[in-house]
């Protein structure tokens, strides 16, 4: 799980082009949207593609992302339970 979280942080930084942020800057329970990392609705769409591309998880409705993308913690858990790509 820890490895997955680290991998996830690296991928998020890379995909969202978070230039000034390192893996150590993101805590597992930090809010990704709003006050935390400050991501927005376009980032949410990018994360949906990330789930699909890297983990084989397809979300049909962007609203589903709200629960899943709360934090690295929630995201990693969802991926661990639903991934079809290893």
């Amino acid at each position: 799980m820890e490895a997955l979280k680290k991998e996830l942080k690296e991928r998020i930084i890379n995909v969202l082009n978070l230039e000034d942020i390192t893996v150590d800057d993101i805590q597992d329970t930090d809010a990704l949207f709003g006050d935390g990392l400050g991501l927005d609705s376009i980032d949410a769409l990018e994360l949906i593609v990330l789930l699909d591309k890297e983990y084989g998880i397809k979300l049909a409705d962007p609203k589903q992302g709200k629960e899943i993308f709360q934090s690295i913690e929630t995201m990693a858990q969802y991926i661990a339970q639903n991934r079809t790509k290893l």
Binding site: V15, I42, L45, E46, V49, D52, K53
Partner: peptide, 10 residues
């Protein structure tokens, strides 16, 4: 036509 992200399109 897979795994496309919105940023470049926007």
């Amino acid at each position: 036509e897979q795994f496309l992200t919105p940023t470049a399109f926007i």
